[in-house]
Amino acid sequence: MAKVDKLSINHLVTQREGNIVSDMGSEKVMLNIENGKYYNLGTTGGEMWELIAAPIAVNEVVTKIMTKYNVSKEQCEQEVLSFLAHMYEEKLVQVTTQK
């Protein structure tokens, strides 16, 4: 898998294996087996985690989050890209280019 320098709305993202995710009330928490770190995904992050169970374009994640929350497209893109880029840096998600 080639390294992606900068995540864009046109990339495909999906969960990587090796994470244990649990519901804690309305939020999701995750333990990465490989690095031993815990992550609090929160409510919206947990929803994004569920959306990326199978490969999905980042712009589709943005559309689905915008549909649920009253947020501008620009702000939603920024927040989704920031969250997924952090997840990618932590090796929690896989990123590929669309064909």
Rank of each mutant, 00 (worst) to 15 (best):
Y39P: 01
V58S: 09
E89A: 00
A57I: 10
V80P: 03
S72E: 02
A85Q: 13
R16D: 09
E77R: 04
W49D: 10
K73E: 15
P55I: 13
L92Q: 06
E50S: 15
S26A: 05
E34C: 01
Q98C: 08
V29P: 03
S8F: 11
T63D: 11
G46F: 13
G25N: 04
M87H: 13
N32S: 14
K6W: 08
K99F: 15
V93W: 04
W49F: 01
C76A: 11
T67A: 12
L12P: 04
D23W: 03
T67V: 07
K99S: 13
I9Y: 02
D5T: 12
S22D: 09
L41M: 06
L84E: 09
E90D: 11
M87F: 12
S26Y: 15
Y69A: 01
G36V: 05
T44C: 01
E89V: 03
A53R: 09
T44Y: 11
L92W: 14
G46N: 08
V80Y: 09
V93T: 15
E34L: 09
Q94N: 15
G46R: 14
T97M: 08
S26R: 09
L31R: 01
N35A: 06
E47Y: 15
Y88A: 13
F83L: 07
N32L: 02
V29I: 05
Q94D: 15
V58E: 07
L31I: 10
E50C: 05
L12N: 06
V29R: 07
S72L: 04
G18C: 02
P55Y: 12
L51K: 11
E27P: 00
T97E: 15
L31N: 05
L41E: 03
E79I: 05
S26G: 07
Y69C: 00
M1Q: 12
V4C: 10
I56L: 07
K68N: 13
I20Q: 07
H11Y: 11
P55T: 14
K64Y: 05
K6T: 14
E60P: 02
L31F: 14
K37C: 12
D5Y: 06
S26V: 13
A85I: 01
F83K: 02
K28G: 09
A54S: 13
K99W: 06
I20S: 05
V93H: 04
M30F: 04
E90Q: 14
L12H: 02
K64D: 08
M87S: 09
E77C: 00
Y39K: 03
E34V: 11
N70H: 06
Q78Y: 12
I52R: 07
E50F: 14
N40R: 12
A54E: 14
N40T: 06
H11A: 08
T14L: 00
N32Q: 12
P55Q: 13
N59Q: 15
